[in-house]
Design a binder for these strands. Sequence first.
DNA 1: ATCGTTATCGGCATCGTTTGCGTAAAAAAA
DNA 2: TTTTTTTACGCAAACGATGCCGATAACGAT
Lengths: 342, 342
Amino acid sequence: MKFESATIKDIAKALNLSTSTVSRALRGSFEISAETKKQVLEYAEKINYRPNPIALSLKERRTRSLGVVVSEIANNFFSQAINGIESIAYNRGYHVTISQSHESGEREKVNIQHMAARGVDGLLVSLSSESVDLSFLKELHDKGLPMVFFDRVTQEIITHTVVANNYLGSFQATEHLLQQGYRRIAHLTSSPHLSITRERLEGYKDALAKYHLPFEESLLRNCPHGGMIQDEVEDALNSLFKGKNSPDAIFTAGDRLTMTCFGLLKRLNPQRHIGFTGFTNTQVGDLFAPSLTVVRQPAFEIGQSATELLIQMIESKRPVTEFQNKVLDTELIIRESSMKMK
Amino acid sequence: MKFESATIKDIAKALNLSTSTVSRALRGSFEISAETKKQVLEYAEKINYRPNPIALSLKERRTRSLGVVVSEIANNFFSQAINGIESIAYNRGYHVTISQSHESGEREKVNIQHMAARGVDGLLVSLSSESVDLSFLKELHDKGLPMVFFDRVTQEIITHTVVANNYLGSFQATEHLLQQGYRRIAHLTSSPHLSITRERLEGYKDALAKYHLPFEESLLRNCPHGGMIQDEVEDALNSLFKGKNSPDAIFTAGDRLTMTCFGLLKRLNPQRHIGFTGFTNTQVGDLFAPSLTVVRQPAFEIGQSATELLIQMIESKRPVTEFQNKVLDTELIIRESSMKMK
DNA sequence: ATCGTTATCGGCATCGTTTGCGTAAAAAAA
DNA sequence: TTTTTTTACGCAAACGATGCCGATAACGAT
């Protein structure tokens, strides 16, 4: 089953012209007579001619498409970020190819290499939680493939980055819980490799320090799959609530993690009140019971900003040497789940 | 800023061979000596040679990528369906290019034509609510571009389709509300043009008929943007609850519509109890207050099934003339929101 | 010595489009 | 009329890879 489209040759043959004349007529070159031009334009319109973007890509060595790598689409943060990416990309004439790593480093590598082999003009990357060996990305970067990291970034590759103010968002959320009177705040987070994990942990620690509380390893849990695997979260919660020194509040550091943990908390511990807040971009936090106190990231804007920087790099004549590291503020939306029961 | 990659010519030049020899050596042709083959393979590995997919696409007239058109990614149903699409596509060696129509017919047309102009080997389409003139799609279909419709389908183009059993899902949900004792069940749905709208309306009507209740126009509301525009839903709800004959239950026919309506219902009518259920693929229906009775569609499986059919069409030698119309069952998950208060 | 085989490789066209260069005919200048 | 300029177009190369055909050499058979 093949799909045939009209080419410039078909027009040339039909009108007894050369392909070069047709090509020039189509793009309105001044060295083609008005008459010929009109003829060509009319015929092209008639047979609904569309230039073959693949041939153009081969010639111009560009595809006008951007590659996006995220861990999961079915994640409020990422789907909103992708909306931001798309809104800029399409306005600037770029396509968007999306691939998911599902938090697998191997999958991420395969997807990126597949896209990079001339499939895309640039890459928007949010690393997977398994990503440790980034040498394949570094190679692509060294070869000149433009890339911008967002959300989950790396220091190993020097380029533009766009992230939320994870430190401050985490600090504010933790401080809010402390202000409410909670004193044993557990922190449920993703893989320790990730930049967001480290930054959010720092904010959490510093907020504790401000209230002269020690950081306790025993209140920290890592779920490398970020809430995608329910058992991982369930194990973490069970171990947290096993002893007698169990936490009185939980602060989660990721969209899926927040949702999964919130659900499990209701199931596993329905009787006890646990203060709760977490990073999530859900738009229905006020519909939950209890309504959810959340740290919201400017996902759409992060996507937009990263895309603008990427396109700017792609279209720059000379190699870019000055890089921006954008940090956008989060928003703490306080609802019932973090309130202290009397 | 350009990204240069090694080509077959570089290998040929370096090894003093012709490009054809290198090409054949790379794909292990038997008419190349073992020695040359080894030389080529080794050098290719050394410079990390990757065939240029664009050049291959031009030659083989295929791109090994699939185009997906949905209204919104940030929609539980679609993001899960895309996961299904991706799971099959990547296993079969296809890329996935996603575009959103945002329920705009114009945007949909532009995106599809952009992708179709040789950008993709086939299309997976869920129509936008504004889609009325499908002539551009029909043209592409007539030219031989393989396409499969899922979720929101059309009769105008004869090809494979994969949908949920919208009629039955709607019937069961409505019947459930009726069994609970509700008698004035409003139906909030999307654009009347959509197949899903019609099918779900039929199920709703037939369930009413089974209980000898008349269908009342005054209990039907269309929100063409499917819950993406809050005001649309708010207006619909306000007009429903204006008179004295206001509904005692609401049944919504779409993911975003369900979420938006559920939120508004709590805000606008906090005092009165309204029975509620709707189509949605949210994974956290049990976390809401009240927990949400939902009609869940097998989104992942729908995506998988549609993709399998599409790839089968693409790889078929001769035009496909027998088409499947798959219908997958929905699941009614009963929770508190649809319970009748005593 | 001549021919046929076989093994191994190169030349060239091709996919669709753009573009630098060349050139015929027509128009303008001499 | 001759020369120069302009107009309007064609030729061919290029992008990267493939594949049909043809070329060359070595070798055995006749």
